[in-house]
Design a protein around this nucleic acid. Structure first.
Lengths: 255, 255
DNA sequence: TCGCATAGTTCCATCTTACGGAACCGTGTT
DNA sequence: AACACGGTTCCGTAAGATGGAACTATGCGA
């Protein structure tokens, strides 16, 4: 059994809860019972306890959905603060692996907002960009958000930042297609001369991308070969973060 | 004891979880133990189980915060869907009491978006407005959202809808002050001739208003006296909804 | 540098509490 | 009307949860 140490009631309840919360739409009693392999009676009692605690709610047709505690939390805007905290270890790990500057960004009215950062261990590295917003089309984070539909390009001309900035919409579209194809984005001195960044998508719901994770550094260090390597690491951590947020395929109980 | 029927482990865990989720910032182990009155050992075991289940997370300094399950849910946008579901019974109750059209609205880029509705039982009543956005300054919902800082008035002229629409910013400000003073907003044929509505704020976090609840009907039925009465009912249900979302003062375990 | 206090985890004997099979209820179906 | 299905309640059993105390870790003051 998967009972590390005497608390299987709560573990089982959490298991049920996970099913309910993960599932985009209502889950039925029987689905829960079979999914977790618990006896009907046990399932019933646990669900009633969860309901009592406001963790689960049953809709008109008996389907289960996340309860007031979840809804209240979401409305209180815990999301962003929480994301940063949940993401931190993954950023750190990526920082350890690459030694470069790591950023987590989300779309915020037509720009990328960087919401968390890990400093490079090199002397030459990024300054602190947290809170800073940059245009979508010339940042690796932004390209990812655009490519996966987490942001829409604002109307108007695409701002010209460097000689390499992509300012044509058609050119940008084909670049985004490329991003989708290989699973990560690159900006090669398109935002600022000498600055290269790669970014990968963070999934957080069926197929929805909510945030992006990037590695940035000077062109001198991020050579063609190294970009491949860094991109792989970036994708790996982005995926791990996605998993932590709940939504890859489905999960069972096991460590 | 408050154990309705054999599941106190889960009930206690839910109690702990509630403390953690309700609290805007991290909660310490000891605070939890004392707040719930559980033995240290029990608290420890339960928290470990919750942590294992991804319901709770401990930050660097040992403080407890809502875990990945909450963050993931919030990021998946469960908020809006959930709000409607959680709110439904309150809307229904308000509908029963007033027999008028009930709406739940949130701010959405400079407008009020109606996200749920209960139809009037009268033949003359509102049509279906769900999904419809109306200007903030001439809707009762919008005035509430403005008055409590849940929405900002977009720049530019205030659209003129009827002879009574308030189009002066100063006049609107004093109306909003009035809203704050008495706790509810009224639009008296300011959006559409013959349409009167009252609305009250839905709190969902410390002092933050996230949504508003309204009662609308024809001027013929919503007379001056009746408005008082309806407003009281509206406020009552709005408060009840706020409570359901978690955040009035604090709660203890008791039915 | 060394205790001491504070904070949290692990142990363990006790017995309460959760378990699951079966009986039971309520509803929608043919 | 009788049935199948989905869910809740009952009840004896024993397994899991409990809390006090012992123990470990960490920070604090002297």
């Amino acid at each position: 059994m998967t009972s590390p140490t005497g608390t299987q009631a709560v573990d089982r309840a959490a298991q049920l809860l996970r099913e309910v919360v993960h599932c985009p739409d209502a889950v039925t009693f029987t689905e829960l019972a079979t999914a977790t392999g618990l006896a009907k009676s046990t399932t019933s009692r646990l669900l009633m306890a969860l309901e009592r605690g406001g963790l689960v709610r049953r809709d008109d047709h008996g389907g289960f959905r996340p309860g007031e505690m979840f809804v209240g939390y979401a409305w209180r805007g815990g999301a962003e603060a929480g994301l940063v905290a949940v993401a931190r270890p993954f950023l750190d790990r990526l920082g350890d692996v690459t030694s470069e500057t790591i950023n987590l960004g989300v779309a915020s009215n037509g720009m990328v907002e960087q919401i968390a950062q890990v400093e490079s261990t090199y002397l030459i590295g990024g300054t602190n960009w947290v809170g800073l917003s940059v245009p979508l089309h010339c940042a690796a984070l932004g390209k990812v958000l655009l490519a996966y539909g987490a942001a829409q390009l604002p109307p108007g001309r695409l701002e010209h930042r460097t000689a390499r900035t992509i300012t044509g919409r058609a050119a940008l579209q084909s670049d985004l297609a490329e991003v989708r194809r290989r699973g990560y984005a690159v900006t090669d001195e398109e935002l600022e001369p000498g600055l290269i960044a790669v970014a990968a998508p963070v999934y957080s719901g069926g197929a929805a991308v909510m945030a992006a994770l990037s590695v940035s550094g000077p062109a001198s260090r991020l050579t063609r070969d190294r970009i491949q390597h860094v991109a792989a690491a970036c994708i790996a951590q982005a995926n791990a973060l996605s998993a932590a947020l709940g939504y890859p395929p489905q999960r069972e109980g096991a460590a």
